[in-house]
């Protein structure tokens, strides 16, 4: 029987590789969670259809990249397509939900998921599409300790961190950011000061949608592009927001990295850990089961410790 390749004397490279995988998952979750938390912070809206925007981004990228042969054009299409879809549903549906209670928001955005998912299946069929990473990034890169790591995943981590920096700059330093923060604190007051609140809301929603679409397109080149890809990510992004605290971009970043790392490292190392004091078959089973629950247990612990999340101000 072949030995598993992660032997004890190989743990350091494996650890680094898995930490990079966790970071990559984490920054992609951040793109989702940042949009959700912004939309909730400014408009007070819980948007279940955010996962659909992620899917729309991935489908736009896959379709345009297949048609044009250019991954970069695909990315641009994903951003533009998701932002347009976001602005459209904000104008047609979401706008009517701002004053409503959370139950109505949940149901209406659940209805949007049904429409978008089945509509996409109608257009593209049930088979997954494939999106290839650009040629320039298709080869692995040699890192210290003899690690070969896919260049594309490293690029994703870079893009995610750059977008995070850009968001902090946008919220903290620009006129739009000032308005967004003012909208979070007192929407009547900034409307009274002459800010076109309707336009601001559409812009924030489209911004969140574009971030989700970008994440969908970037992840689409690692996994397959298919209907239903958005909702598991949406639920993970909710876990991120609960951990980080609602309305906080910083909380979303910390929460996303925590969730990404816990999920990735737990899946690899928990079975290993249990092998120290259990027989291998049982250890793999127990470890895998526990790993699948690790992030939710993390969420529960954070909640018991701080019910409003790590950086949340209000309940």
């Amino acid at each position: 029987m072949p030995r598993p390749h992660f032997d004890c004397n190989m743990t350091l490279p494996l650890l680094i590789e898995q930490v990079l995988n966790g970071l990559q998952a984490g920054v992609m979750l951040f793109l989702m969670a940042a949009g959700l938390t912004l939309i909730f912070g400014v408009m007070g809206l819980i948007n279940l259809a955010h996962g659909s925007l992620y899917m729309i981004g991935a489908f736009f990228a896959a379709a345009v990249a297949a048609w044009s042969g250019s991954f970069l054009l695909g990315l641009v299409a994903a951003l533009a397509g998701a932002a347009f879809a976001g602005a459209l549903i904000e104008r047609v549906v979401i706008r009517r939900l701002y004053g409503r209670d959370h139950l109505d928001q949940v149901l209406a955005t659940f209805a949007l998921i049904l429409i978008f998912s089945e509509g996409t299946r109608w257009l593209f069929g049930s088979f997954p599409l494939y999106l290839d990473a650009p040629d320039a990034l298709s080869k692995p890169i040699a890192l210290p300790f003899g690690i070969l790591y896919p260049a594309y995943r490293l690029a994703i981590i870079g893009v995610g961190l750059a977008v995070a920096l850009g968001l902090f700059w946008l919220i903290g330093r620009t006129r739009l950011g000032i308005r967004i923060r003012a909208g979070e604190n007192d929407r009547e007051m900034i409307a009274a000061l002459g800010v076109d609140i309707d336009r601001l809301y559409t812009m924030v929603f489209a911004l969140g949608a574009a971030l989700a679409g970008l994440a969908g397109a970037l992840v689409g080149a690692i996994q397959s592009v298919q209907v239903g890809m958005g909702e598991p990510v949406l639920i993970l992004a909710f876990v991120v927001i609960v951990i980080g605290g609602i309305g906080s971009i910083k909380g979303a970043l910390i929460g996303a990295l925590l969730v990404g790392l816990t999920d990735t490292l737990g899946g690899v190392f928990l079975p290993q850990l249990f092998k120290l004091f259990m027989e291998p078959a049982a250890a793999t089973q127990t470890g895998a089961s526990l790993a699948s629950m690790a992030i939710y247990i993390l969420m529960a612990l954070v909640l018991i410790w701080r019910p409003t999340g790590l950086f949340g101000a209000r309940a």
Binding site: F40, I46, H102, V106, P232, I235, F238, V239, I241, V242, I246, Q285, A288, S289, A291, S292, M293, Y296, M299, A300, L303, I304, P307, T308, A315
Partner: peptide, 30 residues
């Protein structure tokens, strides 16, 4: 755990626990 919070937190947490059981049963080979 989840009733310590309210509003959107409660919605998101109940949704997350649902997903936890979903993944747990998938991994529960027995």
């Amino acid at each position: 755990v989840s009733l310590r919070t309210s509003g959107v937190y409660f919605i998101m947490i109940t949704l997350a626990f649902g997903q936890m059981f979903f993944f747990f049963t998938i991994s529960w080979a027995a």
